[in-house]
């Protein structure tokens, strides 16, 4: 399994370097998605398939798609269409595609070898164990994360609230 890990690690580093060096936000985001997928493959090699799936669902899925949508929605209209066409020209998506293809081959190799963890040192951690750890010894951590989200929500609500129209004090 070691070569699979190293290849995924190299893909992660290359794509992250590309994220930093791209001038265009959309191109950077495409590479960021690849970087997150590579990290997911690494988690899988290390015997944490559940974390790998979360990485894909939460980061590469929900958060990144939200990013891409927001950036694309900011440029509506004919000018935006023209810009999007330019973004999707060949070569732009080539790099991310090649990197993702490498990862796909890796996952294929892993699946064909029946079972992820071949080395006895690696014990896969199933979702059930993650859940037991979270709601056992780390219960306070889960609750603190809840307070963290409440704080973020209240701060975002206050700062993003529309301006009151009149000069009166809002009560």
């Amino acid at each position: 399994m070691l070569p699979v890990f190293w290849i995924a690690a190299i893909v992660a580093i290359v794509s992250t370097v590309m994220v930093i060096t791209r001038a265009n936000a959309i191109h950077a985001l495409l590479y960021l998605i690849v970087s997150l997928l590579a990290v997911a493959v690494m988690f899988m090699v290390l015997g944490a398939p559940f974390v790998a799936m979360l990485e894909i669902i939460v980061y590469a899925g929900a958060i990144m798609v939200l990013f891409v949508f927001v950036i694309m929605l900011l440029n509506l209209g004919p000018k935006g269409v023209e810009q999007e066409r330019r973004w999707l020209k060949g070569g732009v998506w080539g790099g991310p595609c090649v990197l993702t293809f490498i990862l796909l081959v890796e996952v294929g190799v892993m699946l064909s070898r029946s079972g992820i963890a071949e080395s006895p040192a690696i014990v896969p951690v199933p979702p059930k164990e993650v859940g037991i750890a979270l709601f056992g010894p780390y219960l306070i951590g889960v609750q603190l994360a809840g307070i963290l989200l409440l704080g973020g929500l209240v701060a975002a609500y206050h700062i993003g609230r529309p301006e009151p129209r009149d000069e009166e004090k809002p009560t």
Partner: peptide, 23 residues
């Protein structure tokens, strides 16, 4: 480490909102 990091982040997120309070 887990409670250190969570405590720090809870503290920080409150402070972000407070600093920018008079928006």
């Amino acid at each position: 480490f887990v409670s250190l990091f969570l405590g720090l982040e809870v503290l920080s997120i409150g402070i972000y909102g407070l600093i920018a309070y008079l928006r």
